[in-house]
């Protein structure tokens, strides 16, 4: 289901919720806030959330977007859930490495690999 408002496409595969970021740039504060609200609502709906965030379309991210992801990650862990990020472009992955957030997040190369980890 595509949520035009927040720029997300949400689907369910093998018990996991897969969220595809449809916006190329996750920069705008209002957009980041909407994405965060939507993701936190998805986490809240599940007893033990299994979430995959697919970044294939994303070519730019700001530190505010990283902050939003950290908050979502915290909510997932509070419910003993699992969050995987996947399909992160090399330039964006470098941002994760520079900020050491690659040590916090579970990151898979592909959506398939992320789903296998959650299975």
């Amino acid at each position: 289901m595509e949520d035009q408002n927040s720029g997300l496409t949400v689907s369910t595969t093998d018990g996991a919720t897969v969220v595809e970021m449809t916006h190329r740039k996750i920069l705008d504060e209002i957009n980041i806030s909407r994405i965060g609200e939507r993701l936190n609502a998805i986490v809240a709906e599940s007893d033990t959330p299994k979430l995959v965030l697919d970044f294939e379309n994303v070519s730019h991210m700001s530190s505010s977007a990283l902050g939003m992801l950290i908050t979502v990650h915290k909510h997932v862990r509070e419910k003993d859930g699992s969050l995987w990020l996947c399909n992160i472009q090399p330039s964006i992955y470098e941002v994760f490495v520079i900020t050491r957030l690659n040590e916090i997040f579970q990151i898979a190369k592909s959506r398939q690999e992320a789903l296998e980890q959650l299975a």
Partner: peptide, 21 residues
């Protein structure tokens, strides 16, 4: 320093270090 172990999970404070990087 947002990359210090104790600050890694803070949701903010990365803008300046990214500019410097």
């Amino acid at each position: 320093d947002p990359t210090a172990d104790e600050n890694l999970e803070r949701p903010c404070g990365r803008g300046i270090m990214l500019m410097r990087a």
